[in-house]
Structure formats: C-alpha cells, structure tokens
C-alpha cells in the first residue's frame, strides 16, 4: 500500500496547477523512492517529468510499485478542497480503484477526506538520455516568466542565444521585434536574483513561446529556474524542489530549413 504525508498541501496543489494545462490524464508512479510522473502533451512537443522523492514526505511508505492513473482535472477539483497549509496524506491500496486524500488542518480539528476514482492509463515512458548541456542558465523564475510573457505578445517563437556575452532572448513578429539580454549577475543580499550562466559552447535554439509560458506556471514552486540547452536537442526547464524533488519540462526545438 501507499501512504504519503505532505506537510503542506500547497506543494501538490502548485505542481498539479503547473502541469494540468499541458497533460490531462497521467500515471503517478509510486515506489519506495517516491512518486514520479512522466507525460507528454497531446501534440508530443513537450514532456513533463516530476519527481517527488520519498524524503519530501514524512512518513512515506510504499511497499510495491503502484501506478495511480489520475485525471488532473479531477485532482484539481479535490485539491481545491484543501487549504494551502493543510497536511495532506495520499493513500492507496496495492491494486487500487481509488486514491484517497486526507486533508488535516493543523490549527483546527477539521479532517476532510476524498476519494478519486482511478483510470487505466496506457502510458509510454520515454528514455531521457543523460546530456552534458552546452549551456546552463540559472535565473530567477519570475524573470524567466516575465520574458516569456512579454515576448509572447509579439511572436509565437523565441530564439535563445547563449554566448560569452550572456544570454539573449529574441523574437520577431508582425508588429516588430524584441530582445532581452541578460548577463551573469550576483546579488549577495538577494541570491534569488542571481543569474548564472555556465557555458561550454555557444548555443542558439528556437522554441515555441506558447509552451514556455505554460511551463512558467511552475514559477511559484521555486525562486530560481534552470534552463539547459544544447544545439538541436530539447530544452530542459527545471524547477528544483526541496529534498532533491523536481519538476522538469522538456521542449522540442523548432529547427529550420
């Protein structure tokens, strides 16, 4: 059986909120290392990969591998019934028909309990190759969100160019063009504002802004976001969570002519 207790329902609420517009039905794969999810969007352009390590729960118990096939719309409805600060416990039997969610308020004696019917989801898993990326950019997640939002007003695509000069986000649209240039930046008082650019080779890639704007819904999960790029491979956008847990998005590039 599975029993996983989260100190704050908020974490799961934010994760599900960040991915529910990209993927609808997906398996939460539970085993003794934690709860993982991997799913492509319908058009097979983006891939979501979530890992909530067992250390992110206290306690965490999962005796055998269980795949919980859940509709994220349904999960969202139930998670809305939890307060952000509620303690959340997920429970499931070994061959479950439902997943059970219990929300406990630490302040009051209120305990609420919901069951969500599970679905049989035949989901392919993709092997994600280990990649030594040519460029890794760590920056404030709010800054990345702003860049994607601003440029999406002008164009469908953004080119991300990383060189010794820094990183440049460029777009061209019908009304004109826009570009934002960032350099490495260290703020001792506010390290969450740091921009770190780790470059082994110059990179230039083009991506759909629609997907990037979607990924940025995860901005509330982490002050910083990591962008990993290599020429002609999918972009990795990573939001690191506590205890080595993470929410990652991969986006296939647009490649020309």
């Amino acid at each position: 059986m599975l029993e996983a207790r989260l100190e704050q329902a908020n974490l799961l609420k934010k994760v599900v909120d960040a991915i529910k517009d990209l993927v609808q039905d997906c398996n939460f794969d539970c085993n003794d290392s934690g709860i993982a999810l991997q799913a492509m969007d319908n058009s097979h352009v983006a891939l979501v990969s979530m890992m909530l390590k067992s250390e992110s729960f206290s306690p965490f118990r999962c005796d055998r591998n269980i795949a919980l096939g859940i509709n994220l719309g349904s999960l969202t409805k139930v998670l809305r019934c939890a307060q952000n600060e509620d303690i959340l416990t997920l429970k499931a039997e070994d061959a479950p028909d439902v997943v059970n969610l219990v929300f406990e308020s630490a302040e009051t004696d209120r305990i609420s309990e919901y069951d969500i019917k599970l679905m049989d989801i035949d989901q392919e898993h993709l092997g994600i190759p280990e990649t030594e990326y040519a460029a890794t950019i760590t920056m404030p997640s709010a800054e990345f969100q702003r860049i994607c939002r601003d440029l999406s007003a002008l164009s469908e695509s953004v080119s991300i160019e990383c060189s010794k000069e820094g990183v440049k986000f460029n777009c061209q649209g019908d009304i004109g063009s826009g570009s934002i240039h960032l350099r490495s930046h260290t703020n001792v008082d506010k390290p969450e504002l740091n921009v770190e650019i780790d470059l082994t080779e110059p990179v230039s890639l083009t991506f759909s802004l629609k997907y990037l704007v979607n990924f940025c819904k995860a901005s509330g999960l982490s002050n910083q976001v990591k962008l990993c790029l290599s020429n002609e491979v999918p972009l990795l956008v990573e939001y690191a969570l506590s205890n080595n847990s993470y929410l990652r998005f991969y986006l296939a590039p647009k490649i020309g002519d």
Binding site: M40, S43, H44, V45, A46, L47, E124, H125, L126, G127, I128, P129, S157, T206, S208, V233, P234, Y250, L251, A252, P253, K254, I255, G256, D257
Partner: peptide, 14 residues
C-alpha cells in the same frame, strides 16, 4: 521557416 519538432524525435520509447 522553422518547423516544430516532436519530442519523440529525441527521446525513444522505453
């Protein structure tokens, strides 16, 4: 112009 690639062109099904 540039064409949107599929993620399946990069990551193989297990």
């Amino acid at each position: 112009g540039k064409n949107q690639k599929s993620i399946l062109g990069f990551f193989q099904k297990k």
